[in-house]
């Protein structure tokens, strides 16, 4: 697969305050995104995710480094013809209706009126905003703005879609819908780069991730390679066995309504626990193995910083 976005040695320093103090936000970032994948860009607040995205889109000028978009230098307007972007907390011209707003962006890409009409119709359907199409954006809720923002990012049928915190501020249903739209983008052959700190969502949809902490990428790669398949521990909810007896096998935690939650770290001990429960005529209510999650990996990386 060919590379659609490549970043090498990106650095950016900002001067802040009345008496300017220099703060290095990006300390030499390099990564590449291949065509057709969903790439998750993760990091805690202030790590430099948005700064990186703004550099890519030409909103901020990096101090050093090289960015290539669709095989061209990122500031070349031709490279932006195939890029869609949804900023964090999007604000749009609130005097326009959704239809006028999308039409305005369509015109910026030089699309013919008939093409614009057809795309706007399809996009409003995709983001389920047909009913509010002729309502002024001033009256939109945050979730509605996010959807129209997504439609705006797709008006030029981009090859690469960059989404900055696309799931922020949405309710669970809204998040699921946006996730589905992102997956559909990939199915249509688009590449998606998204930044987020909602790790479950990233875990569900991303093919590859990069973890950014304090302006440096600490880890990047395929999710399956980053997160080990090793079982961290097994949680067993059981009843009929005393806590004292269980303590030798694992970590008995809560005892609610006569049930005990036992955390077993050594896999080899699970058959022993099951035998013990059978001997005491007790019951097993549930048995769940926990493998490493993206969150474990993320917390493990962010904490030492």
């Amino acid at each position: 697969m060919s590379t659609i976005l490549s970043i090498e040695g990106l650095r950016k320093t900002f001067s802040q305050g009345f008496i300017p103090r220099r703060k290095e936000i990006l300390k030499g970032i390099s990564f590449a995104v291949s065509e057709g994948e969903i790439f998750g860009y993760l990091g805690p607040n202030g790590a430099g995710k948005t700064t990186t995205i703004k550099c890519v889109l030409g909103l901020i000028f990096p101090d050093a480094g090289r960015i290539e978009l669709c095989g061209r230098p990122h500031l070349d307007p031709r490279s932006k013809e195939k890029v869609g972007f949804l900023p964090e907390n999007p604000y749009f011209y609130d005097h326009l209706t959704a239809r006028e707003f999308l039409d305005f962006y369509g015109q910026l890409f030089g699309l013919a009126p008939a093409v614009r009409r057809e795309r706007i119709r399809a996009l409003l359907k995709l983001v389920d905003m047909e009913r509010a199409a002729d309502l002024s954006l001033r009256k939109y809720s945050r979730g509605m703005l996010q959807r129209v923002g997504l439609a705006q990012a797709l008006i030029n049928e981009p090859s690469l879609v960059v989404l900055d915190e696309p799931l922020g501020g949405l309710d669970p249903i809204g998040r699921k819908e946006v996730r589905d739209i992102i997956l559909r983008m990939r199915d249509e052959g688009r590449t998606v780069v998204l930044s987020s700190h909602i790790l479950q969502d990233i875990e569900m949809i991303c093919d590859r991730v990069a973890i950014l902490v304090g302006g440096l990428i600490l880890s990047q790669g395929r999710l399956a390679d980053l997160i080990s398949e090793k079982i961290l521990f097994t949680e067993i909810v059981l009843s009929g066995v005393g806590r004292e007896e269980l303590a030798a096998l694992g970590e008995p935690l809560s005892a609610l309504a006569g049930r005990t939650l036992l955390k077993v770290y050594d896999e080899a001990r699970i058959p022993t626990v099951l035998d013990l429960v059978r001997d005491r005529k007790g019951s097993i209510h549930s048995l769940l193995s926990r493998t490493q999650t993206l969150e474990d990996l993320f917390v493990g990386m962010v904490k030492p910083q």
């Binding site: 703004k54 889109l57 030409g58 909103l59 307007p77 031709r78 932006k80 013809e81 890029v83 972007f85 949804l86 900023p87 907390n89 999007p90 604000y91 749009f92 011209y93 962006y105 910026l108 890409f109 923002g149 705006q152 030029n156 960059v162």
Partner: peptide, 14 residues
């Protein structure tokens, strides 16, 4: 201030 410029400048306009 209202950040409407973010989406505009990200389009192929100078």
């Amino acid at each position: 201030e209202k950040r409407t410029i973010f989406t505009l400048i990200s389009k192929p306009i100078r």
